[in-house]
Computed example of a mutant assay.
Amino acid sequence: MSGDDRQRRRLTDFLKAEAADKGFDLCRITGPDSIPQAPARLADFLAAGYHGTMDWMAETEARRADPRVLWSEVRSIVVFAMNYGPEHDPRAVLAMPDRAAISVYAQNRDYHDIIKGRLKEVATRFAARGGADVKVFVDTAPVMEKPLAAAAGLGWQGRHTNLVSRTHGSWLFLGSLFTTADLIRDEPERDHCGSCRACLDACPTDAFPAPYKIDARRCISYLTIEHKGPIDPSLREKIGNRIYGCDDCLAACPWNKFAAAASEMKLVAREELKAPAIADLLTLDDPGFRAHFSGSPVKRIGRDRFVRNVLIAAGNSGDRGLMETCTRLADDIAPVVRGMAAWALSRLMTASEFRQFAAGRTDDADEDVRAEYERAKTER
C-alpha cells in the first residue's frame, strides 16, 4: 500500500470513527460522479409537475442534479444517517379521531439543527486532521441526499422513493459532508424491495403514480407542510387526522422490523406531541402556536397553515363538540383558516344548521373562502 493510500485509509477511518462518536448510526462515502441517472430522473419529475408548488426544485435543478455543479471542487461525498425509529407503530393514532397525528420526525427538536450541529463538529475535526476543505448540508441545500446515500451504500431508494436500510428500515435522517479530500468509497447497496407493494398500498391518497415515483401534489406530507393555500377538497377526507406529515408509507415497510427505536441520546418524541387533542390545537393563536412548538419543525409552517390542517382533522372527526371553536375560526383573520373552518363546519353540522350558518357569509372578501361556502352548500 502506497503512502497516499495509507493516508486515505487513515482519513477515512478517522472520519467514520468521528461520526460514530457524534451519534450517527451510519456513515458511508461516495463520489460526486456516483448518481449519473439523477439528472434525467429529476427532469422527468419536474416535467410531470410532480413537484407541485415547490418552485425552488426547478430553480435549482442543475445544482441538484449534479453535486459538481453545486461545488466544482468536491472529490468525496460523505453521507451520514441517524436513526429516528419510533417505539411503536405511529399509525395507531389514526384510529383516534379526537387526536391529531404528527409525523414521527417532527415530534421532537428540529432534526436540521441537531444533525447540522453534529456534522459541523465532525467536519471541524476532519478538516483539522486532513487539511481539506469541507461543506456540510442537511436538507436545506440542493443536494439529492437519497440517491447519494444509496450510492454510498447506506441503503436503497425504496418504491416509496425514501431510503430503506437493511439495519434501520425507513427511519433515517440524512446529512452530507462534501470535501476536497480523496477518500475511500463504499460500495452501493442493491435494491431489496423485490415485488413488495406495502408502502404503495399504504398511501391513503394514491400519491405514487408508479413504483419509485411520487406525485407530491397528492402526498399528505407535501399538502400539510409545503402547500400554502387551500387543500384539494377531494383529498381532505383521505387526510383524516394527519395534521403534519404522514408516516404511512414509511411505517408499512417490512424492513422496519430490523430498526431499533431511537436511543435517549438521539431523538425521542415529546410526550405532548405524540397524539395531541384536536380540540386543544384549534385554540392556538400565533403566540400559543409558537410556544407550543418551540424547537419543533412544525413551527416553520406558521400558525395559519397549521390550523388549516387541524380544521381538516376536525371536519373528519365527527365530533360536534368542536363546532363552537370552528365557528369562531370561521371569523379568523387568515383566509385559509376561514375557508377550512367553513369546510369543517359543513361536515360537523346538519345540512339545515349549515345552511343557516352560511347565510350571509358568501360575501367574504376572499375568493377562496367564498368558494368554500358555495361548494359546501352544493354538496349539502
Score class of each variant (00 low, 15 high):
residue 77 I to H: 04
residue 78 V to N: 02
residue 78 V to D: 00
residue 78 V to A: 08
residue 78 V to M: 11
residue 79 V to E: 03
residue 80 F to A: 01
residue 80 F to Y: 10
residue 81 A to K: 07
residue 81 A to Q: 07
residue 81 A to Y: 00
residue 82 M to E: 14
residue 82 M to C: 02
residue 82 M to I: 02
residue 84 Y to S: 05
residue 84 Y to M: 10
residue 86 P to H: 11
residue 86 P to N: 12
residue 86 P to D: 03
residue 87 E to V: 13
residue 87 E to W: 11
residue 88 H to E: 15
residue 89 D to R: 13
residue 89 D to W: 07
residue 89 D to L: 12
residue 89 D to M: 13
residue 91 R to D: 04
residue 91 R to A: 09
residue 92 A to M: 12
residue 93 V to D: 03
residue 93 V to R: 09
residue 97 P to C: 10
residue 99 R to S: 02
residue 100 A to S: 05
residue 101 A to R: 12
residue 102 I to D: 05
residue 103 S to H: 12
residue 104 V to G: 11
residue 104 V to H: 05
residue 104 V to K: 06
residue 105 Y to E: 02
residue 105 Y to A: 11
residue 106 A to R: 03
residue 106 A to K: 02
residue 106 A to H: 05
residue 107 Q to A: 12
residue 108 N to K: 13
residue 109 R to K: 13
residue 110 D to S: 12
residue 111 Y to A: 05
residue 111 Y to T: 06
residue 112 H to C: 04
residue 112 H to W: 11
residue 115 I to A: 11
residue 115 I to H: 06
residue 116 K to E: 13
residue 117 G to K: 06
residue 118 R to S: 04
residue 118 R to D: 08
residue 120 K to A: 05
residue 120 K to M: 10
residue 120 K to W: 02
residue 121 E to A: 10
residue 122 V to F: 09
residue 124 T to S: 15
residue 124 T to G: 13
residue 125 R to N: 09
residue 125 R to W: 05
residue 125 R to M: 09
residue 127 A to H: 06
residue 130 G to C: 15
residue 130 G to R: 02
residue 131 G to P: 13
residue 132 A to M: 07
residue 132 A to P: 09
residue 132 A to W: 07
residue 134 V to A: 13
residue 137 F to D: 00
residue 138 V to D: 07
residue 140 T to G: 06
residue 140 T to Q: 15
residue 141 A to V: 05
residue 142 P to G: 14
residue 142 P to Q: 13
residue 146 K to T: 11
residue 146 K to S: 07
residue 147 P to N: 14
residue 148 L to M: 07
residue 148 L to N: 00
residue 148 L to A: 00
residue 149 A to W: 03
residue 149 A to Q: 06
residue 149 A to F: 03
residue 150 A to Y: 00
residue 151 A to R: 04
residue 151 A to S: 12
residue 151 A to L: 08
residue 155 G to L: 03
residue 155 G to Y: 03
residue 156 W to R: 05
residue 156 W to E: 01
residue 157 Q to L: 14
residue 157 Q to G: 04
residue 158 G to S: 02
residue 159 R to L: 04
residue 159 R to G: 03
residue 160 H to P: 01
residue 162 N to M: 12
residue 162 N to T: 08
residue 166 R to S: 12
residue 166 R to Y: 08
residue 166 R to W: 01
residue 168 H to R: 00
residue 168 H to V: 10
residue 169 G to F: 01
residue 169 G to W: 00
residue 171 W to P: 00
residue 171 W to M: 02
residue 171 W to E: 07
residue 172 L to C: 03
residue 172 L to M: 12
residue 174 L to M: 07
residue 176 S to E: 14
residue 176 S to V: 10
residue 177 L to N: 09
residue 178 F to H: 04
residue 179 T to E: 03
residue 182 D to Y: 01
residue 185 R to C: 00
residue 185 R to Y: 00
